[in-house]
Design a binder for these strands. Structure first.
Lengths: 347, 347
DNA sequence: TTGTAGGCGTTATCAG
DNA sequence: CTGATAACGCCTACAA
């Protein structure tokens, strides 16, 4: 049945054909008007644009992608959107992409490798030209899928010089080691750590290892490190802290895998009537705004979020455009000292 | 390890045709296998699924949308993703959608009506079946576009009984009025407000009005209310607070348009050596986690974020499925009293 | 500068 | 149950 173009069908989306009809030109001309206006004469262009306005035409993305094989869309998959850990980096990433007219699609994996694999497929199916991913740990299928499709991707929030994959990030282990060194400088011997689940999370594993490195360098027994794993949330941080405070001997410093956990810990300390840092020191990781907001301010690892996002965008755009290999970039971190870290309490 | 791909087809995405060839069936059968497996015999199904696995086939979203005219994708456009104001609501929205196999695409408008209009077009072009929007204020073109396309949408974070559009939200004016009443109960006479830009932001205007309402009801002159407008950010909240503290007479209570601004204000107060609430009271709006984290805790308007997201999802799914009108829902807010609000300081 | 026509990958409507 | 085949909306050589 040939299409029966109902006159005045208001609900349907106008198509290129509708516009072309109204402007009295061919669909090709309309398409050119929209994509390379220079190729069209002033007069027709105006006619066409007029029709576009009147009909409220907007191109159908699917059809466009299908025909052009290019979407000008990048994707990013982060473990979580619930706290601000990735917000600033993503924001910078998006800003830089926007300058080149590229749209960003964001998805969350909820810290699950399976979910991430699904989201990767999802974004690719939606036509993402390139992907931003967090850390190295993901299913083999995920990597295989990306390679097979030839989708450019860059790994952020982690950097491994020994890995051939392109990344823009920092050395989690070294970063945490530096922080732990500061903690030990204050004389702490009984350390504890609140870590994210290390299984399937390379950043968490490396940060844990960083603490051990620091202990070993001082002749401390790393297995003495009391560890509790907790999902990255404020309340879980509180619970984990309460747990650790039951241990004997009680830790004098609690190193947290990120600022959200550390904030939860600080709040729980207050609830328990423990003073920070007089009774117990607490540190974070990331240096997000929260670290400054909580009282006392968090001593934490300062991560260059914005620069990471910026650079990642550059690398990715280059990889796509020139079909070049791309080049990994290691960024450096620092330690931000705030009041939450202090000397060992007198027993 | 690649799977011995067909010569020349290594980088390209496998298509339905590739799968059908490999499985020795028609493309139609493959499609059915994937979409309504019940219609296919056990034997063929297995053959096909095998081929799908081997080729790493994933459907092309654009083509799918083009042919099926539906995407099982909803969109949401929020003013910002940088702070957690909308995070919990969106999370709940997404969770509920996920149960029905619907994917959520999120975009940010950066508090700009023009940008929002662009994002609406963008998401619709990408095939969003329905949209979640924040507040009522948007360009006429935005509304016109949505109506013309017949895209179901629901307005959240605001509720206006007099407006015919479907919404799931709360009365911002009344909510703020209740909070302001509490402030006045403490005896404050010199009030100040840090508001979001009211132009193009109905929620901000209504909250402002809510404060005035409370003042009027007590016989205070509402024009005495000192107001500073600031973008919703921590640092801007700090700056605005510093500004207000210069005013003569100095306000004894600062009512903020949201918790982020209020937190910035609290921090600035501390920097200035002012005690909260002994020297000055500060209130927020939203009751996000932050309100509990900052010291002192924020007295704020408690908004049922999760329920709003949940309900919005329900309403929207219903509107799409049954093509029904949908029904607006007003949610109620409360006032959460914390330490940041106290009596008027003795002069 | 403009128009014609083929094809992008899927779904859905028919017959077999 | 399965297989052709016609849309779906757009882009892009290729012609005119």
């Amino acid at each position: 049945m040939p299409q029966t173009p109902k006159p005045g069908s208001s609900a349907a989306s106008p198509t290129l054909a509708d516009v072309s009809k109204r402007a009295g030109v061919s669909t090709a001309t309309v398409s050119r008007c929209l994509n390379s206006p220079a190729q069209v004469s002033q007069a027709t262009r105006e006619k066409v644009m007029q029709a576009v306005k009147e009909l409220g035409y907007a191109p159908n993305f699917g059809a466009q992608a299908l025909a052009a094989k290019r979407t000008n869309t990048f994707g990013a998959i982060v473990p979580t959107l619930e706290n601000a850990i990735f917000a600033n980096g993503l924001q910078a990433f998006q800003e830089n992409l926007g300058k080149q007219g590229i749209t960003l699609l964001v998805a969350s994996s909820s810290y699950s490798r399976e979910m991430e694999e699904e989201q990767i497929r999802n974004l690719v199916a939606r036509g993402a030209d390139a992907l931003l991913l967090i850390g190295y740990d993901r299913t083999a299928d995920s990597y295989e899928f990306l390679e097979r499709r030839g989708i450019p991707y860059v790994i952020a929030w982690a950097f491994d010089a020994a890995d051939a994959r392109i990344s823009v990030g920092f050395d989690n282990q070294r970063a945490m080691r530096q922080l732990a060194d500061k903690v030990l400088d204050f004389g702490h011997k009984n350390l504890a750590m609140i870590s994210a689940h290390r299984k399937g999370n390379d950043r968490a594993r490396l940060r844990f290892q960083g603490v051990r490195d620091a202990m070993i360098a001082r002749g401390l027994e790393p297995d003495q490190l009391a560890v509790v794993e907790a999902p990255y949330s404020f309340t879980r941080g509180s619970a984990a802290f309460a747990d650790l405070m039951q241990r004997v001997p009680r830790p004098t410093a609690v190193i947290c895998g990120n600022d959200v956990l550390a904030t939860g810990a600080v709040k729980m300390a207050q609830e328990m009537g423990l003073r920070v840092p007089e009774d117990v020191s607490i540190t974070g990781f990331d240096n997000i705004e929260l670290a400054e907001i909580v009282t006392p301010g968090l001593t934490t690892v300062d991560v260059p979020h914005r620069e990471m996002g910026l650079r990642a965008a550059e690398v990715l755009m280059q990889m796509r455009q020139e079909d070049s290999e791309g080049e990994s970039q290691e960024l450096s971190t620092g330690v931000k000292i705030r009041a939450s870290l202090g000397p060992v309490p007198k027993a």
